[in-house]
Each structure stands twice: as C-alpha cells, then as structure tokens.
Design a protein around this nucleic acid. Structure first.
Length: 258
DNA sequence: AACCAGGCCAACCGCCCAATT
DNA sequence: CAATTGGGCGGTTGGCCTGGT
C-alpha cells in the first residue's frame, strides 16, 4: 500500500510525530469544546494537522483515561481469548480492555502475541482451541457472513467454527420467554433479527453477547440481570471460561457478529 | 566506539459505513 | 436516490531504540 495523497497531504499540514505544544493545544481545545467535529477541529484549535490526525492522537495517546504501561498477564490472556473469538477486530477487543486502545492492542498482538502463539502452535504440532490462528493468519471470524448458524448441526464446518455445538441457549432475548429453542425449530432469520435488536439495545456487540450468554448459560455474579457496565468480576469470569462454556460462547458470538 | 539488524510503536493510509444534503 | 461528508477501522509504514557483534 503506497502513501499517496490524503487529507494529511494537503498543503501546509504537519505530519509525523506530535510536539508537546501541539498536544497541549489539542488537549486544551477538547477540554473546552469536547470531542467530535474532527475535520473542523484543527482550524478552530489553530493546529496545522488534519482532523484524522487529531482524532488519532487524542484517541491513542492524549485521552485522560488511557492506561499507560505494560500489558499485564491478565490483559495478555484476555487479548488472546478475545482475539480467538473476534479476530482482528481490535476496536472490539479494546472495548473489553479499559484504558487500552485498539492501536496499542494491535501493536502488542503483532509484536508479541502472534509470534508467541505461532511458537506455541509449532510446539503443539496442531492448532488447539485456545490458540486459534489459521495457517494464513486469519482467525475464526471475519466480517463476511457465512450464512450458517452455529446452532445447526447440518453444515457449519466451513465457517471455521466448532461444528455441531449443542447450544441450548434458552431465551437469548432475555425476557419474552418465547424462544426456548433458538434457531433450531423456528425461522432462523427471524431469530437472528431478534438477536441483533437485543444487541443494539445492549450497547455494544460483544457486551451484548456476553449479557445474553449470561442470561442463558452463565451463572454469573450479576444473577443474569442485564447491566450496562460490565464489572471487573465479569471480565475475570470471561477470562476464566474454559472447555464447553468457552466453545459455546465462541459459537454464540460468531453467530451474532456475522 | 561504530556499525548493523531486528523490534517496537506512533502515525499514516485507504477503505468502509452511516448520516446528511 | 445519488452524492457528499464525517468518523471509524484495520493494515501498513518508517523512525527510533536497543542489543549484539
């Protein structure tokens, strides 16, 4: 991929590393005016940067809630599990790691975890469920729909997911009590639309899956009640998911992310 | 001390999607 | 409905740093 013209290439705009003065101007402006309107921001703030560059700098470095410092062992482990579930969807993964940015996680994965897992894989001889990286570097999930439900046993081997997972998720909608056998007996597309609506209500996709999963299978500390904020205990429980529970969550998420 | 290779990471890039006109 | 705009995303680059020779 070449570096051709872009918004940052327009005449007179600075590129490259940010100076302390530019940082201060950007932080000061956002503190006074809030985030957003990135394209207009540089002009208003008096910065010779493109809007995208300002947004990136703020999101990845200047935001007050950014957690600096090394990735902890717990975070490391969670990244691996989330990556096996979500693939290279760094923003989603970052969303489950408070204070970490998608760029940071992406860099960490590319420079640390991918190599480590490749070594692990070599040593193990064969890819295992815990460390899912395919031969071509792709993972178990992409944005392309497979059109195949992991809830069905018919033919789901082609989507890279565990096949024939006997999910009995009860009522993933959580409250209506009308879908006891999701996508097994009923119209699969209707069930899918319902599921998506639930996910939209829940705020973010992975959080939605997590909540739905809790409601159906996972006896968690929140007693299955929907929460807007995922508590630290819940992260820890997600981290500790193993065996069949883990495989079922994986299938569940794959089903709703496509 | 000088050079080199490899790793790390901030930043840029093109693409995509949703909202707006 | 099509075109435009704004924002966000994942992939990639390239400069800096560090360790080895």
């Amino acid at each position: 991929m070449g570096r051709t013209s872009s918004c940052c290439s327009k005449g007179g705009l600075h590129k490259g590393p940010w100076t302390a003065r530019e940082d201060a101007i950007l932080v000061n402006y956002i503190q006074q005016n809030g985030e957003g309107h990135w394209r207009a921001l540089p002009k208003k703030a008096g910065l010779l940067r493109c809007g995208k560059s300002c947004r990136l700098r703020w999101m990845n470095y200047l935001r007050p809630d950014i957690k600096r410092g090394n990735i902890t062992a717990d975070e490391d482990d969670l990244i691996i599990k989330l990556h096996s579930l979500l693939g290279n969807r760094w923003s989603l993964i970052a969303g489950r790691l408070p204070g970490r940015t998608d760029n940071e996680i992406k860099n960490y994965w590319n420079s640390h975890l991918s190599k480590r897992l490749a070594i692990t894989k070599d040593n193990a001889g064969e890819t295992k469920k815990e460390n899912i990286i395919t031969e071509n570097g792709e993972t178990s999930n992409t944005r392309k729909p497979t059109g195949v439900s992991p809830f069905c046993n018919d033919d789901n081997s082609s989507n890279g997911m565990a096949s024939g997972v006997p999910l009995s998720l009860g009522n993933p909608g959580g409250g209506e009590g009308e879908s006891d056998q999701l996508a097994v007996n009923g119209d699969e597309e209707i069930q899918k639309v319902k599921g998506r609506e639930e996910l939209e209500e829940s705020g973010d996709i992975f959080g939605g899956c997590e909540v739905l999963y809790k409601e159906s299978l996972w006896n968690c500390s929140t007693n299955g009640e929907r929460t807007d904020e995922i508590e630290d205990d819940s992260y820890q429980q997600l981290l500790n998911l193993q065996g069949e529970d883990y495989i079922q969550l994986e299938s569940f998420i794959d089903y709703f992310l496509i």
